[in-house]
Design a protein around this nucleic acid. Structure first.
Ligand SMILES: [Mn+2]
Ligand SMILES: [Mn+2]
Ligand SMILES: [Zn+2]
Ligand SMILES: [Zn+2]
Lengths: 154, 154
DNA sequence: ATGCTAATCGAAAATCTTTTTCAATTACAC
DNA sequence: GTGTAATTGAAAAAGATTTTCGATTAGCAT
């Protein structure tokens, strides 16, 4: 009933008028058949077994493409980040403006029900969570309307 | 009523029997008085105004320390990550084992109430969120009990 | 005060990760 | 087949973070 993941990704490329090259096929196969989430370097290493000539640059480019189209997803770690803030309270999360970078902290994440339910279902002992929200702050929203723009930062 | 943030951090260092050096004071002052979250490089640049000799290495080391003690918090971005997984569904999050790295996806994050409430309170137009849970998977929990261990990966 | 010592520092080099450049190659629409 | 824009990989650049190691220093014990 369900279409193979790799087939879906291939069709996705075609739909977006992108070429289905041998390097990309090798990468697609690895991601589609992987049991775990993989880093670009890991994907490169594995995909090279099928297509030894494959460059790491192509892995990065293909991952960007697949992420953009939604066929691949980033998995975040607690320490895969690059910015720090003084903790006002014990526990806090942030709402970061995707346009100007301004952030606002909040503490009431209320994830306990979700966490309890997942612990029950999966048997994991959950002891940490990363929750960050992104969007346009009021200032940037206003400015965007005024300029008729909708650009992202960077 | 509330104690200044920098004082808290200083006391924290003392409590943990760490030295309160001039380089650390400079870093503490910057973080405590910052309105935004700052990258290590930004903190370095700013703190150098107070203590020009300051090395970037010390910034990294101090941030590790303060994070460990809970006086500083990481702020995550949507793209500050290094691992990818094929998306099974449109929307998904992950439960990652902090010991072996094994991950499990889930989709029912149910953040709408929180998001709606924050949009109302802050005026942000929230359009993206990062939610990842970390903990020990059943296998690793069992193994830990068997070995009487409690170590983290890496 | 003075000395002791473990903690800490910073420069430099080593490691990694990711991006940019650019000339050569290739998928694929016609 | 041919033409052309998309794609590729080597190499270099750019960035971020960690390791090394000899010099310095905070904080405690005389
Ligand atoms: Mn929370
Ligand atoms: Mn979600
Ligand atoms: Zn903004
Ligand atoms: Zn595990």
């Amino acid at each position: 009933m369900t279409m193979p993941v790799s087939t879906e990704m291939r069709d996705g490329l075609r739909e977006h008028r992108r070429k289905l090259t041998r390097p990309r096929q090798a990468i697609l196969d690895i991601i589609a058949s992987a049991a775990h989430h993989l880093t670009p370097a890991e994907i490169h290493k594995l995909a090279r077994k099928k297509y030894p000539h494959l460059g790491l640059v192509t892995v990065y480019r293909t991952l960007d493409l697949l992420t953009e189209f939604g066929y691949v997803q980033r998995v975040h770690f607690a320490d895969g980040c690059h910015s720090y803030a003084a903790s006002a309270q014990e526990h806090a999360h942030h709402l970061v403006c995707s346009s100007c970078g301004k952030a606002q902290a909040f503490a009431d994440c209320d994830l306990e029900p979700l966490i309890a339910s997942l612990q029950r279902k999966t048997g994991y002992e959950i002891n940490l969570h990363v929750l960050e929200l992104m969007g346009k702050c009021p200032d940037c929203s206003t400015r965007a309307v005024a300029l008729g723009k909708n650009g992202k930062r960077k």
